[in-house]
Design a protein around this nucleic acid. Structure first.
Lengths: 211, 211
DNA sequence: GCCTAAACAGACCAAACGGTCCGGAAATAT
DNA sequence: ATATTTCCGGACCGTTTGGTCTGTTTAGGC
């Protein structure tokens, strides 16, 4: 199988993603992708009409892969407990473990790199970014709404804001991790976020090491 | 005063900063800056030898301005209370008020936009990024070390991680604010962060509305 | 084996881009 | 007033970049 179009397309997407996370979208030049992947212009433009089309394909694929990880992690958490509060804590814990197992800083979130070049992109791409973040919010917001009904928080809180907090911590930690070259940043900051939830809903200490 | 070199230089820096925050560093083209500022190539390259030199000047200026805001806010917090815990809470609260007064999302942190194109820059620039974030950490870490001595935390915590938490929340909130076009994001998430500190060090409710 | 269409290689192109150069205007020193 | 330096306008240049085009190779149906 020397000529597998789908495989080549995936290789292009992988290479482009790596380069975007290191150089930004504008910094990622097509010629650079060609070298990195080991193909030629003919191959590239056979799979993608323009660089913008690559950008959209890249974003869609990243959003889909991310949604899958979220869904799997959520399912795993729901299997381990029936209590939505415990589910959230397990959910966070599972993400912590993901990042704690890494030796280098997480290369970064593709969405964030797009956000910092937002004006480069058209409305369709911007909408896709908006929707993806909104989906992440909805996923956790739903849980937090159940939680506040069953476990009275020590302070009045907004489920939506708590849900955004997860993404905020992740995105912020990625930035600091890259700048400080510290692979532990994401796991540590997620642990802090989890600690906040535990304090907020008064989780007893012996119930915290669930996962 | 028709020909004020310093004023022109500042105008270039302002315009370039705006464009970098919208388009990223690579996306910010010199010709675009010229249009935006209303000058010509001759003027630009009279003040900056290369685009890279502009990048460094931009970063240094941003870091300095930021350090000044931090120092002023810190001084203001220290004037309002002698207790380091209250100082931190006031400090956060003052930042909240800053962002809550804005009608559009904060345009973003220049450091973060550099971080997401990190490989574009040389060692000197990368070091400057590292040092700037390290300084932000040191500023709050110092306070948190005093706090944990005087106010036993409900959970064992690392002052350095708590300090990073502030930056993490800010950077993450900027990203979400831009993506969701939500000006309130930064203030809300800082309020959540402050809530975490209050719960962690068991601040009574009536002592929370200090500022 | 043959045909067709997808998958590629690589020369080529026009526009964009960072940067140079020189002339001239404006401030400042003498 | 004159000289000198700073500041700036704008034409110009070489390289880079996204994209095109033509030809060639490979996979798969018949």
């Amino acid at each position: 199988m020397r000529k597998d179009g789908i495989a080549t397309r995936e290789k292009i997407l992988d290479g482009a993603r790596d380069l975007v996370l290191r150089l930004g979208y504008s910094g990622m030049k097509i010629d650079h992708v060609l070298d990195h992947v080991g193909i030629t212009k003919g191959a590239f433009f056979h799979h993608f009409k323009t660089k913008d089309e690559l950008a959209k394909a890249l974003l869609r694929r990243y959003a889909d892969q991310d949604a899958q990880i979220y869904a799997e992690t959520r399912a795993q958490a729901e299997k381990l407990s029936d209590d939505p509060l415990q589910q959230i804590l397990i959910f966070i814990r599972l993400f912590e473990d993901m990042f704690n197992g890494m030796t280098e800083p997480y290369p970064g979130c593709l969405l964030a790199s797009y956000v910092y070049e937002l004006q480069q992109f058209d409305d369709e791409t911007r909408s896709l970014l908006h929707e993806t973040f909104a989906r992440w919010r909805a996923l956790l917001q739903e849980k937090f709404e159940l939680i506040v009904k069953q476990h009275p928080p020590k302070t009045p809180v907004s489920p939506a804001q708590l849900a955004d907090g997860f993404t905020v911590v992740l995105e912020g930690a990625f930035i600091l991790a890259k700048a400080m070259n510290d692979a532990r940043m994401a796991g540590e900051q997620l642990r802090l976020y989890r600690n906040h939830i535990e304090l907020l809903f008064d989780v007893p200490a012996q119930m915290r090491a669930a996962a």
